[in-house]
Deep mutational scan, measured.
Amino acid sequence: VSVELPAPSSWKKLFYPNKVGSVKKTEVVFVAPTGEEISNRKQLEQYLKSHPGNPAIAEFDWTTSG
């Protein structure tokens, strides 16, 4: 189950709350306009370098507050 949070234009930000008793931590995933899922800052940096014209990296908020 995921919750969609505010994201930069043409992107989606999905929040996957951890299940009770789960060892997996809460996860935030950005979905690029191409449909590619980005789950960490390093991936995001690589994606933005190879896909010019996207929002600046500073516009991506990895917190769950939206």
Rank of each mutant, 00 (worst) to 15 (best):
T26H: 14
K12R: 13
N40C: 06
V28D: 00
K19M: 13
K12Q: 08
K42L: 13
E4K: 07
F15Q: 06
F60C: 02
V23G: 15
P6T: 08
S2P: 15
S9C: 12
S39E: 11
S2I: 14
S22K: 06
F15P: 02
S2Y: 15
L44Q: 01
A56H: 14
P33C: 03
A56S: 14
G21D: 11
F60R: 01
P55Q: 04
P17G: 07
G35C: 04
L5I: 05
V28C: 05
R41T: 09
L44G: 00
E59G: 04
F60A: 01
V23A: 14
E45P: 00
T34V: 01
R41V: 13
P55A: 06
P55E: 03
L5V: 06
K13D: 03
A56R: 08
E4L: 10
K24C: 15
E36S: 03
Q46L: 13
E45K: 12
R41E: 09
V23F: 12
K25R: 11
A58K: 09
R41H: 11
D61F: 04
T34P: 00
F15E: 08
S22D: 14
W11D: 03
F30Q: 00
S22C: 10
T26N: 14
G21N: 11
S65T: 13
E27D: 10
W62I: 01
T26F: 15
K49R: 10
K24W: 15
H51A: 02
K25A: 11
P8K: 06
S10L: 13
G53N: 10
V1P: 15
S9Y: 10
G35L: 03
P8G: 05
K25I: 09
T63C: 09
R41G: 09
S10P: 13
E27T: 14
N40S: 13
P55T: 04
P8R: 03
P17V: 15
G35P: 00
P55D: 03
S2N: 08
F30Y: 07
D61L: 05
V29D: 00
K25E: 13
K19F: 12
F30I: 01
V1Q: 12
G21C: 10
T64L: 09
V31L: 11
K12M: 07
G53V: 04
K12T: 09
V1W: 12
N40P: 00
K12S: 05
F30K: 00
T26I: 11
E36V: 06
L44E: 00
A58F: 11
T64P: 12
V31E: 03
Y47P: 00
S50V: 09
N18K: 09
A58P: 05
I57G: 05
T63H: 08
E59N: 06
H51T: 03
R41C: 10
T64K: 07
N40A: 04
A56Q: 10
K49S: 11
V28Y: 03
F30M: 02
P8F: 05
S10N: 15
D61Y: 05
G53Q: 06
V29N: 03
L5A: 07
W11R: 00
P55S: 03
K42G: 12
S2W: 15
V23S: 14
E36Y: 04
L14E: 03
S65M: 13
P33K: 00
F60S: 01
D61P: 02
S50L: 11
I38Q: 00
Q43D: 13
T63M: 07
S65I: 11
E59R: 04
P33W: 01
L14W: 09
V29Y: 08
K42W: 09
E27K: 15
F60T: 01
S50C: 10
W62C: 03
G35V: 00
S10E: 14
H51G: 01
Q43P: 01
Y16F: 12
L48W: 02
S10C: 13
G66D: 14
E4Y: 08
V28P: 03
E36A: 04
V29Q: 04
Q46R: 10
S10W: 07
Q43I: 06
N18P: 10
V31A: 03
P55F: 05
V28E: 01
F60Y: 03
P17C: 14
K24M: 15
Y47N: 00
P52E: 06
K25W: 14
Q43V: 07
A7K: 04
F30T: 00
K49Q: 13
P8V: 04
K25V: 13
L44M: 07
W11Y: 01
S2F: 15
G35S: 03
G21S: 09
Y47C: 01
N54K: 03
K13L: 03
A58C: 10
A58G: 13
E59H: 06
V1Y: 12
S39K: 13
L14K: 08
N18Y: 11
Y47T: 00
Q46Y: 10
G53W: 05
P33E: 02
K49G: 09
P33H: 02
G35W: 01
W62R: 01
S9D: 14
A7Q: 05
I38L: 08
A7R: 04
V23P: 14
G35Y: 02
P17W: 14
L48M: 04
V31G: 01
Y16D: 01
S50D: 13
H51D: 02
P8M: 06
L14F: 14
E27F: 15
S65Y: 10
N40W: 03
K13C: 06
A58Q: 13
Q43T: 09
E59Q: 08
V28A: 04
K42D: 13
A56K: 10
L14T: 04
L48K: 01
V31T: 04
S50N: 11
K49W: 10
P52G: 05
L48S: 01
V20N: 11
P33R: 01
Y47A: 00
G53S: 06
E27R: 15
E27Q: 14
S65R: 09
S65L: 10
V23I: 14
E4W: 08
K49E: 14
S22E: 13
E4S: 10
V3H: 09
E59S: 07
V31N: 02
Y16H: 06
W62L: 02
S39H: 11
D61M: 05
S2V: 15
Y47M: 00
E36M: 05
H51Y: 06
Y16C: 06
L14S: 03
S39P: 07
L5S: 05
F30L: 04
V3M: 10
L14R: 07
P6D: 09
K49L: 14
Q46V: 10
A32I: 01
S39T: 15
T26D: 15
V29G: 02
E45V: 09
K42P: 10
F60P: 02
W62Q: 01
K13F: 03
P17L: 12
L44C: 03
K24V: 15
K49Y: 10
G35H: 03
L14G: 02
K25T: 10
T63V: 05
Q43M: 13
N54S: 12
E37N: 10
E45L: 11
W62M: 02
S65D: 13
G53D: 08
K25P: 13
K24E: 15
I57W: 06
V28I: 14
S65W: 09
S9N: 12
K49V: 10
T63S: 14
V28T: 05
L48C: 02
Y47W: 05
